[in-house]
Design a protein around this nucleic acid. Sequence first.
DNA 1: ACAGTTCTCTACCATTTGGTAGACGCATTT
DNA 2: AAATGCGTCTACCAAATGGTAGAGAACTGT
Lengths: 204, 204
Amino acid sequence: MTSAGSSGATLPTRQRILDAAIDQFGTRGVDAVSLDEIARDVGVRKQTVLYWFASKDELVQAVLASAAAELVLVIEAAVRSAPNEPLARIDAVVGAVFRPAVRRPALLGLLRELGRLSPEHAARLSAHLAPMIDRAIDYLAAEMTAGRLRRSDPRLIAALAYATVTGIATEPEVLVAVGWRADTAGLRALRSELRGFLRAALAP
Amino acid sequence: MTSAGSSGATLPTRQRILDAAIDQFGTRGVDAVSLDEIARDVGVRKQTVLYWFASKDELVQAVLASAAAELVLVIEAAVRSAPNEPLARIDAVVGAVFRPAVRRPALLGLLRELGRLSPEHAARLSAHLAPMIDRAIDYLAAEMTAGRLRRSDPRLIAALAYATVTGIATEPEVLVAVGWRADTAGLRALRSELRGFLRAALAP
DNA sequence: ACAGTTCTCTACCATTTGGTAGACGCATTT
DNA sequence: AAATGCGTCTACCAAATGGTAGAGAACTGT
């Protein structure tokens, strides 16, 4: 009854609304985006949005859950398919997050919305991501004691690496401001520099 | 006649509005903050805000100019008073930006609004900061060729360092999510880790 | 005491916001 | 053919938004 997809054949409109909302919320901020704008993007009336999601709040909630799930999925897959060596794993995560993120900053941009969300939404989002974060921190700590990573506070290192990747991926304007070009070569160069930056920062 | 401070004794209200607007815009985003909210923060009516700044747009413009000027001032001062050695200078800049930024993320948060501002505002803000950015990049390039910094693309390195500092300073929620405490000891630890992170990332 | 300026206020206004109520079309089932 | 959901629509609404018009206090210099 909650408009959730229990029937199974409920893909097109609902999913399109969700996609549009992720993009808009992630790039412009939740508060700055109206339901009318999302509806216009989808090619539908606002009331259709409110049919699928009973309120803007519920839409935000669904968007956050969806984005967090996607993010976790992508990152875990990257970690699993990488060799068991810390710098290589970090490379893999960066690669997995980076490619989609630069062309579509909305996903990581949503994370940056954390501080602007209502406490309930923020808590839910944190809960979604917490297990992965904890595992990452444990992994970093273990690798540090094993001497394969520079010895430091693993929690703050995780936050710093996150800040670097997210910041660079969600603020293309800054890249443009330093004279970067958003073409394929530029993208490759950026990824290479980011990799070198993180390797240097984390290597023992 | 443009409501600018040509008389000289125009400090209290106008400045208080400006300060409140910097905080609100910087932490919650320009679009998400209403003039009523700013007015309430200041303890005044919305129409008083509109007396000092003819429109919200003009207020945004003034806020950006003020914040950019303050930022440039702080950073240039830090650079001048630091020893002429790249890692020490970077330490100095980080220290200068970091202390106020963590306790009051609005200043750097405004920079993060770049991509959400109207093109005119974004251009003006970029113009304000461009000279300093260019000088920083030139400096990095020179120190790289001199072998005192890790050799790489100075423009992207500047962007990456910026992303790291800004990201960590404007997203305290992430720090909390990794179990960080916002007390004095935590602040010192964070600054120390940030310094170590950047040093490792930039050292030759 | 008076006129003038400076500053903040009350009273509106048009538009946009998130949200409700209910009708219409369109399949599918009976 | 009738009935039943399902999905989208038109038609509203109350509150909030940025903004206008203009009154009135409070301090000036004369």
